[in-house]
Design a protein around this nucleic acid. Sequence first.
DNA 1: TATTGTTATACTCTATAACTATA
DNA 2: TATAGTTATAGAGTATAACAATA
Lengths: 168, 168
Amino acid sequence: MTPESSGPPVPESPHADLLAVLPRLTQLSAAFTKGRLTERATDAAGLALDRPAMGVLLALRTADAPLRIGEIADRMQVVGPHVTRQVQALEKRGLVRRVADPHDRRASLIEPTEAGTEAANRYVTSLLGWFAEALADWPQQDRDDLTRLLTRLADDVTARLARFDTEE
Amino acid sequence: MTPESSGPPVPESPHADLLAVLPRLTQLSAAFTKGRLTERATDAAGLALDRPAMGVLLALRTADAPLRIGEIADRMQVVGPHVTRQVQALEKRGLVRRVADPHDRRASLIEPTEAGTEAANRYVTSLLGWFAEALADWPQQDRDDLTRLLTRLADDVTARLARFDTEE
DNA sequence: TATTGTTATACTCTATAACTATA
DNA sequence: TATAGTTATAGAGTATAACAATA
């Protein structure tokens, strides 16, 4: 069995199995997008919002406090102008409102309205229900392990990528 | 402590912790995109290809056999026209070539050229090296668990979402 | 008539650039 | 002069629609 005639096409590596993780992440991402999971959940919540707008509403819900545009952008890992437009869409639908920032008149604080809070809760409940169904037969240990490992993976990957920025 | 006055804003659920998985997947996806990991790996491979084109090349490498346009699209979970354009780009760069499908003159088979195979291998090696670094201090058990759980999650989520299509 | 692929077009999400107002 | 936000524009990635060739 010579190297060039057979064997798996993967280059030699002590951790080649790790590469299997990447296609899985891609698969999951594609499945969520193509399955329109968030769209179904927004429908179930009686809303007509796209994913980015829902992301803003969820960021506010998670923060459980009014946030500035820039703060929302940081938490969502997107740029400011993107958040500006999503907030405008949410405002039009009466799901968030702006309140003046007492300490800085350049900025305003965004907070969900009563309707916005309820919508976000319905959305989360719907998503959670779906997710619980999908993982209905998972042992609790596996659920815990998945959360733990995925959290660590996200942190390690984020940290490693941040090094690129430092080096440049 | 009344329900409306305090407590976490998350609705009651026996598996509320599972919801933590979704932000992590989002975070990972965003980190890979914003860290331009694939772009760095293609640079390291001496290429000038965007992510979709690289995806086609990887699909061919993984298959280790010539594939039809439709087969590539299925594996990448995208539509045909998208693959058509990526293959055209790869053809121009001499990384793939078309060979006639002896059984069906409507279709052609796509296979990597020598240069394409080498480029894909350099890409994978680069990505693998980076990934191994990021997870350098992970115990082998955790690596195995992550791969196993992520695979199962992807399969379960995909299966569950497929039920929507069936129901409609 | 059904299927494979191509061309042309549109849509979603996010980024960059230029600008305004306040600090 | 630096920072927060907005407006306008651009780009990446992928989908849909209309069509051609072959089955």
